[in-house]
Design a protein around this nucleic acid. Structure first.
Lengths: 186, 186
DNA sequence: GACAATATTGAGCGTTTGCTCAAATGCTGT
DNA sequence: ACAGCATTTGAGCAAACGCTCAATATTGTC
């Protein structure tokens, strides 16, 4: 068995807590969950860096899971639609929204969000392109379509996040599917 | 001239500061700008209520300006596209994003966001319907289109907010226009 | 002009935040 | 066994937050 270092335990605890509470997670909560003193966290990290690192790790995992390299394009896209607004994805919308806002003033977070955005965009673009070469659909501009679908996903997720209005998760998913249909002409 | 009450001055100062700093505005900053003591703010308001009231006033003005009742539909939509990602609108994206996040835990803000969302959605829906009766365009479902365009607008604005990646304001506007073209079939 | 009612003040309380730093502890090599 | 070094601790600092409350200023009424 690999004995995890205290340093790694702190990072893992940060990720854990962010998946429960979002970016409002505090250093004290992290040290408590990691089972270390408050001084150790500050010995290894500055909070803005640790926060950005944990956030980046979370969304690196999301991207890897959302756009697996081996899957067939039509199945992968179907899974993307189906999972886009699943209830257990709510914390990710929250984390994304909070990070975008924080990126305004926090350089470390800005870099992390830019990277995650580029990865997600590239993943969806690659998936759409793969579907074109496989003959599943035809798009005038895969990258532009990926940007629009990604942005629509974000926007719909934001509406769901606040538990606002009449829009349900099912309708949001249908909106995303309909947008794709319009993009590829049926 | 109307002598504004201190109560109104506090609300006005809150709106002022929110248009500069977003929801991170503090009670102390408000009392300072309004030129009143800290106690007076707490005499008239509880902070969550004042914050939500100021936010609601801001977006009520946005809706009124974005969807004037008298304008011709095609001109109004053109203006909507042109102003959607203007640089001086950035603070509104920030306020919107922060409010959506805060709505998770703050009931007053949740109500305000729900109202603003409903108003914006209704405004865009009415504009699209008016354009259909005037023969400018044809849409299968004006309300669904309005929801998608609104959500796309939100998502694109979020990307621009963080100053992230390769997407510029011009491209964002083109994305919005293209989405509308796809919606109405040319 | 006297008195009650209302408006207004600002020092300060209690809490939370990230972070510091002197001290305590554990480990390693000789 | 012991010196030397890295690891780890947690009480506490300084700042910021919303808010309280006793005291003061202003206004209205007869």
């Amino acid at each position: 068995m690999t004995t995890t270092s205290r340093r790694d335990r702190i990072l893992a605890a940060t990720i854990d807590l962010m998946l429960e509470q979002g970016l409002a997670t505090t250093t004290r909560a992290v040290t408590e969950r990691a089972g270390v003193g408050t001084g150790l966290l500050n010995h290894y990290y500055r909070w803005p860096d640790l926060r950005a690192a944990a956030w980046a790790a979370i969304f690196a995992a999301v991207t890897a899971e959302q756009f697996p390299a081996d899957a067939e394009a039509d199945i992968a896209l179907e899974r993307y639609f189906a999972k886009a607004f699943a209830p257990d994805a709510a914390i990710y919308w929250k984390l994304w929204t909070e990070a975008v806002d924080l990126a305004t003033s926090d350089p470390a977070m800005r870099a992390a969000v830019a990277q995650a955005q580029a990865d997600l965009d590239a993943g969806l673009t690659a998936l759409l392109r793969q579907g074109m070469t496989s003959g599943y659909w035809r798009l005038p501009d895969a990258e532009a379509t990926a940007q629009r679908l990604g942005a629509l996903h974000d926007g719909l997720a934001g509406l769901l996040l606040a538990g606002i209005g009449h829009l349900g998760a099912g309708q949001a998913e249908q909106h995303l599917r309909q947008a794709f249909r319009l993009e590829c002409g049926t």
